[in-house]
């Protein structure tokens, strides 16, 4: 059964909607989505997957990073209707309290965040980086994580956490 996003309110909208099949954190559903809705707003407002953060809405900060078919993207720059058939993993899909992903554990152990707002994006970005398989050294990880801003300045701890996990997988 297809369920409309944020049902009642969105249903009242006459701007037209496009049936779109998305697999989000392993669950496949077809949704009727307005063409002007970004993947970021769909996740946050439509699905209550608020772990994906909005920090600029312009692809400049990386807080909204999610994995689409295993690749990291800024979800604020992607209209949801363009992702028909895609598999999306958000921070909620990577790991949960009691079942942490290795990156999530490493971030805790290295105190790789303070306010925590950029954190889900950093972690998803780090997973994307690992999937890309090209970063090995500290300099490479720094360079390739530079799309994810952290205003609290946890950068050195973030790199320590990511290198820990890369090291384990190597």
């Amino acid at each position: 059964m297809s369920t409309a996003v944020n049902s009642a309110t969105y249903a009242a909208m006459p701007i037209g909607r496009v049936p779109t099949t998305l697999t989000i954190n392993g669950q496949t559903r077809t949704r009727a989505i307005e063409p002007w809705t970004t993947l970021l707003d769909l996740l946050r407002e439509g699905e209550d997957l608020i772990g994906t953060k909005k920090g600029c809405d312009h692809g400049q900060c990386g807080a909204c990073t999610v994995l689409v078919d295993g690749r990291r993207i800024n979800s604020c720059l992607k209209l949801a209707v363009t992702l028909d058939g895609a598999e999306i993993t958000t921070i909620e899909g990577l790991g949960q309290p009691g079942n942490l992903h290795p990156l999530q554990s490493a971030f805790c152990d290295h105190d790789a965040f303070q306010c925590g707002y950029c954190t889900p994006g950093q972690i998803c970005s780090a997973q994307g980086l690992i999937n890309e398989g090209k970063a090995r050294t500290r300099d490479e990880v720094r360079e390739l994580m530079s799309g994810n801003l952290c205003r609290c300045g946890a950068y050195t701890n973030i790199i320590d956490a990511v290198l820990d996990v890369i090291g384990e997988q190597a």
Partner: peptide, 24 residues
């Protein structure tokens, strides 16, 4: 010790001001 609110922050379950679900 590790930050006691760390797990909420790394799993995206910590809710910030614009993230509290409210009806209507």
């Amino acid at each position: 010790i590790n930050r006691v609110d760390g797990v909420e922050k790394v799993t995206g379950t910590a809710r910030y001001a614009a993230e509290h679900p409210v009806e209507n």
